[in-house]
């Protein structure tokens, strides 16, 4: 969900990505980052652990009640096993396990999850589970284009990473210098990104990158320093 990325490096058709683009009827393109089977499997394992703890607690509590307790226990087990994901998905779009990895279940058209879809995708866990521990679900997720297991395919849902904002580094002490040429939005973002990433780049690589713009950064200082000064100017504009 970061359209800025598209402006920095416009996506090419042949370039592979895990981004899924959906254009709404209003002509707005939603960019969603799909989540693959491994991270989803881990999220499921965490959810399972949470459920297991809950089961254990219920067993300890309700065993005090004898026969009635067993009855209540079975009903509770049933409800938790089938409706734990539905409950959390309808509340906030993701179960606690998914929340840890910033995952979220949404409709394939980018709209929030509906009740029927949530019920369907979670009831079909029974199919994805077969023959053992989500083997079918894993294979379906790997094969399908949008990382959907059978339940997702039936319900028309996808699992995406929630929009992560790029972390902005604090303002640097580099004196600001205005841009000598007009830049479009993507190019401005690119200059800013260079400044943000430059502490992690090696000095040689920094020089190498900045050298691409050597002819346009003015005479003062090296191209790298000039770019940092421009970035500082841009960042001041962004407040």
């Amino acid at each position: 969900m970061t359209p800025a990325e598209d402006q920095i490096n416009p996506p090419a058709e042949r370039q592979l990505d895990t981004r899924y683009r959906h254009e709404t009827p209003e002509g707005i393109e939603l960019v969603l980052t799909l989540a693959g089977p491994l991270v989803r499997g881990l999220a499921w394992a965490i959810d399972f652990a949470i459920r297991a703890v809950a089961y254990l607690a219920f067993v300890l509590l309700l065993s005090l009640l004898g026969g009635v307790g067993t009855a209540i226990l079975l009903v509770t087990f049933f409800l938790i096993e089938w409706f734990y994901p539905v409950f959390f998905e309808m509340r906030s779009g993701s179960t606690p396990g998914k929340k840890i990895f910033a995952l979220r279940v949404i409709q394939a058209d980018g709209s929030p999850l509906t009740w029927s879809s949530s019920l369907l995708r979670n009831l079909l866990r029974a199919a994805d589970f077969l023959p053992f521990l989500y083997a079918t679900g894993f294979l379906a997720t790997v094969v399908s284009r949008r990382f959907q297991r059978l339940g997702d395919l039936a319900a028309g849902t996808i699992v995406v990473y929630e929009g992560q904002e790029e972390k902005r580094t604090a303002r640097t002490a580099v004196p600001a210098r205005p841009l000598p040429w007009p830049l479009d939005y993507g190019e401005q973002m690119l200059v800013l990104r260079f400044a943000e990433r430059s502490p992690r780049l090696s000095a040689a690589r920094r020089r190498e990158l900045a050298a691409h713009l050597a002819g346009f950064t003015g005479r003062e200082g090296t191209p790298g320093q000039a770019l940092l000064a421009h970035a500082s100017w841009l960042r001041r504009g962004r407040g």
Partner: peptide
Amino acid sequence: LEGWDIELGFRRMARRL
């Protein structure tokens, strides 16, 4: 670590400028 995305962007920018 090597800023491949930045390199690609800078090259495009240099071409445009």
